[in-house]
Structures are given as structure tokens and as C-alpha cells.
């Protein structure tokens, strides 16, 4: 049947289709408007005001944004620290998660057990996990101190929580323990989508283990890799509880993340307008980082 033969019926159908389409996405549009667009517009407006918890806000234009990059050195430092943290933890989680996924992919009863073991910490909340690790490293009641002192070793565990890099190591260890199982599960689903025949063919062609991993497995699971990295990086850029509870910014607020500082400004200093401005900056940063990632990763797959 030619297209021209039934132009009217077709367009009518299309019109009613589009009406049904709008109707079926309207709950989603409503939700997004109420939960995302309205708060976002309100936040943009707040960021242009001196807005305390109570009392009338006063319009101050872009002053909050100027302050964020001039007098408030803690904010810029917190962004740099957040990026450093993200740059360190992302490869650890990805490589570790992939290694675990490869490990538990092998069939056998034990792999189910290991999957469960590795995944279990993920169900613990960040706050609870942070408190658990604070107990681990506590130098008067924690198990590490109990174990080492049994051997007559006296570690300076207080320094783990008051110095910058030791504190960061404690946090990264905790986050790795907690999150790596989740990355493992995501990567495992990607791994399982790689056809065995291709791997066999590659092996027959003489490709070694590394060659198969980098030239067959990873390219084929690129969508999963992109998803895992976007999740992981944006999650790390939004890090808060682990530093709020474990390092509490020590020393000298050097281990404060951007979200931590936004929280502090908004709910300790009651400067909601300034907190909103910092949130807008953070939102832009997240958008830029995610866009770069998608462009970089997708661009590479286009070249393939």
C-alpha cells in the first residue's frame, strides 16, 4: 500500500497517537515539574538573594557567586579536593569492580557465595558504614588497635583521623569496601552480554587473556562501562557523609567536599541563598563533567 493512498486516516491516527502519548507521559512531566523544575527555578532565585532561614530575603544579584570564587577560599578548595577524591577513587572502584566481576563470573557454587559476600556491604547506608569504620580505627575501643596492641605494636591511630592523606585513605578504603560490590554486579551484567563464541574465536586466533579483555570484552560492554563510570563519577563528586562523619574536614577543613561545604553554609550558617549559589555552581560542574565523559566515551565508540 502506498503512503499517499491513506493520508487522512494516517494523520488522524498520528494525532490521536500523539494525544495518547502526551497523556501517558503527563504524570512524568508533572513529577519532573514539581520535583525538579520548580525547585531548580526556586534555587536559582534564592542564589541571587541574601536568604536566611528566617526574615525577608534581599536581592543581591550575583554577589553570592562572586563570593564563592573570591573571599570564600574554602569553597574552591572543597571543589579541588572533591575532584582529587574522584580522580583517585574512580579507577580503584572500576578496576576493582571489574576484577571482582571477572572473578565471580566463573561458574560454580562458590561464585554465588562470593557475589553475595562482595555485594552485601552495599546495602549498608553511608552513614552507618562511616560509623562502623570510625569504630574500626578507634584507638581505644577499635579492633585494629586491639589486634595490634596484642602484638605489642602501638600505632598512632589518632593521626589517621587528623591528617589529610591518612584520613583520605581511611575514607577511600571504606567507600571501596562499601561500593565495589555494586560496581561488580553492574559490570557482571555487561560481561555476561559478551558472547562466548567471540571469546573462543579470539582465543583460537591466538589472543591472550589481556588481548581478549581489552580488544573483545571491554569494547563489547562499552554501554555498561559508560553507565558505571557516569554513576561512579557523579556519585563521587557528590560525596558527603563519609567525610562529614569520618574526617569532619580535618585538618583545617582540607578534607571538606563541595556538598559538605554547601551543607555547612546552608544549615550551620543559615545562609540559604549562598548555599543555593554554591549548589548551582556544583550543578554546572556535574553537567560539564558528565557531558565530557559521554562525549569522550561515545566519541571513541564512534571511531571504532
Amino acid at each position: 500500500m502506498s503512503v499517499d493512498a491513506v493520508p487522512i486516516r494516517r494523520s488522524r491516527r498520528r494525532r490521536s497517537d500523539s494525544w495518547i502519548g502526551v497523556a501517558s507521559i503527563s504524570p512524568a512531566i508533572l513529577l519532573i515539574t514539581v520535583l525538579f523544575v520548580v525547585p531548580l527555578v526556586l534555587m536559582l532565585w534564592m542564589s541571587l538573594n541574601n536568604w536566611s532561614f528566617l526574615g525577608k530575603p534581599t536581592f543581591i544579584g550575583l554577589e553570592n557567586y562572586v563570593r564563592a570564587f573570591t573571599t570564600d577560599t574554602t569553597f574552591v578548595n572543597s571543589i579541588v579536593f572533591t575532584l582529587v577524591y574522584t580522580v583517585i577513587i574512580t579507577p580503584i572502584l572500576f578496576v576493582g569492580g571489574l576484577a571482582l566481576a571477572l572473578f565471580v563470573k566463573r561458574p560454580g557454587k562458590a561464585s554465588g557465595l562470593f557475589r553475595t559476600i562482595f555485594f552485601t556491604p552495599y546495602v549498608v547506608g553511608f552513614a552507618a558504614a562511616s560509623f562502623l569504620w570510625l569504630w574500626f580505627v578507634n584507638d581505644s575501643v577499635g579492633p585494629i588497635s586491639a589486634a595490634t596492641s596484642a602484638f605489642g605494636i602501638d600505632l598512632d591511630q589518632t593521626s589517621w583521623l587528623v591528617e589529610k592523606w591518612p584520613g583520605l585513605v581511611v575514607v577511600i578504603t571504606m567507600v571501596t569496601w562499601k561500593v565495589i560490590g555494586f560496581q561488580m554486579i553492574l559490570l557482571l551484567s555487561g560481561l555476561q552480554g559478551v558472547p562466548e563464541e567471540l571469546l573462543e574465536a579470539a582465543a583460537i586466533d591466538g589472543a591472550g587473556w589481556f588481548r581478549r579483555l581489552f580488544s573483545v570484552i571491554l569494547p563489547l560492554m562499552k554501554p555498561t562501562v559508560i553507565m558505571v563510570l557516569v554513576f561512579s563519577i557523579s556519585g563521587s563528586l557528590l560525596a558527603f557523609e563519609q567525610f562529614f562523619l569520618i574526617t569532619t574536614g580535618r585538618p583545617n577543613n582540607e578534607t571538606i567536599t563541595a556538598v559538605y561545604w554547601i551543607y555547612n553554609v546552608s544549615f550551620t550558617k543559615f545562609e540559604l541563598g549562598y548555599g543555593a549559589a554554591l549548589s548551582v555552581v556544583m550543578l554546572v560542574l556535574l553537567l560539564v563533567v558528565t557531558a565530557i565523559q559521554l562525549k569522550f566515551l561515545k566519541g571513541r565508540s564512534d571511531e571504532d
Binding site: 574536614g249 585538618p251 583545617n252 577543613n253 550551620t268
Partner: peptide
């Protein structure tokens, strides 16, 4: 009106003074 930010804040100046001065 700034009691919280000046003294109670764990990331504020009083706690900083303790961390860097006392310890």
C-alpha cells in the same frame, strides 16, 4: 546571632583553634 557559626560549627573557627592550637 552567629553563635552556631562562630563556636558550635565543627568546621568553624573555635574547633579550628583547638585542632591547631591545643593539638
Amino acid at each position: 546571632i552567629q553563635e552556631l557559626a562562630l563556636f558550635n560549627d565543627a568546621n568553624g573557627p573555635l574547633v579550628g583553634l583547638m585542632q591547631n592550637g591545643v593539638f
